[in-house]
């Protein structure tokens, strides 16, 4: 029983991690709090639903298509709304407001499309194969979700730590000016980061859809809050922090639900978050305050 809950917590947590990382990347590099990422999640889930319900393509292909489409969506959002604002001096809050605009637009569009009711994934897909380990029951879909989430995180880790572009992204998150002087094209980096962040949100949307079997057009709103919490707990701009914080949040939620009351699920979570932040205002793994950029 407890092992089952722990594993469920890790599965849910790994999805939270992906959402948290997507917020953390945008905050870290662009100092941008993008509320629309929640709706990008919802769009990713909805796209996966359309693909899996109507086209007969398999999960792997659905994931691939969603990843590419949402990455493109992230780039488009940046180019159309955030980039023009960045050129202005007093740009700090304006992009955030624009992102709320995007979030409402996407929500309304999805609402129109689905008729405002949650849509369910085909049973045969989300049920998967059921198997037992000891006393615990798992479905193959849980394993798939966890596998995809962990693989994506490892890929991201490798990309940010070892590749030249990854190091350039980390450089850019510290200083636009100094990165420029090293020959880094900031505009390229911004596009790459916008794409990756949005792609992670889209992917986590698919994983949410597969885990719960149903999605609503308002799914984004819930997950935006979770994403913030993970980002804050993890520490500003810390991708590794977000990975761990997401899994921690998932565990807290599932374990508090099974041992305390379901009604107060989010209450326990946020009480704990507030307490943690009181003692560690920079987050559990945050060691540095957000950098004030000199550009």
């Amino acid at each position: 029983m407890i092992i089952q809950q722990i594993i469920n917590g890790i599965i849910l947590g790994s999805i939270y991690s992906l959402v948290g990382i997507s917020f953390t990347l945008l905050i870290g590099v662009l100092h941008l709090l993008n509320f629309a990422l929640g709706e990008v999640m919802m769009i990713g889930a909805l796209m996966a639903w359309v693909i899996l319900t109507f086209t007969g393509l398999n999960i792997a292909l659905a994931v691939l298509i969603v990843i590419m489409a949402t990455a493109l969506l992230g780039v488009l959002m940046d180019v159309t709304a955030f980039k023009p604002l960045r050129r202005k001096k007093e740009y700090y809050l304006a992009p955030m407001i624009s992102s709320i605009g995007f979030s409402l637009i996407f929500q309304e569009m999805a609402n129109k499309y689905t008729g405002g009711v949650p849509v369910s994934f085909p049973e045969n897909i989300v049920q998967g194969r059921i198997f037992n380990i000891g006393n615990s029951v798992f479905s193959s879909i849980n394993v798939t979700v966890l596998g995809i989430a962990l693989a994506m995180m490892m890929l991201l880790h490798y990309f940010l730590q070892k590749t030249k572009t990854g190091i350039a992204i980390r450089a850019t998150s510290e200083s636009f000016r100094r990165s420029r002087l090293l020959g880094i094209n900031i505009n390229h980096i911004i596009l790459i980061v916008s794409g990756i962040a949005s792609m992670l949100a889209g992917l986590s949307g698919v994983l949410v859809g597969l885990t719960y079997g149903a999605i609503s057009p308002f799914l984004g709103t819930i997950f935006v809050t979770k994403g913030f919490v993970v980002m804050l707990l993890g520490g500003f701009g810390s991708v590794h922090g977000a990975m761990l914080a997401g899994i921690l949040l998932g565990l807290i939620e599932i374990l508090s639900t099974s041992f305390l009351s379901t009604t107060y699920k989010d209450l326990w979570t946020f009480v704990l978050v507030i307490i943690i932040l009181l003692f560690r205002p920079l987050g559990l793994f945050g060691t540095l305050p957000p950098v004030h950029r000199e550009d």
Partner: peptide, 15 residues
């Protein structure tokens, strides 16, 4: 770049 290690700074120097 104060958050990168010495080696990464040199790598990015050759960007």
């Amino acid at each position: 770049l104060s958050r990168l290690n010495v080696r990464e700074n040199l790598i990015i120097g050759a960007y």
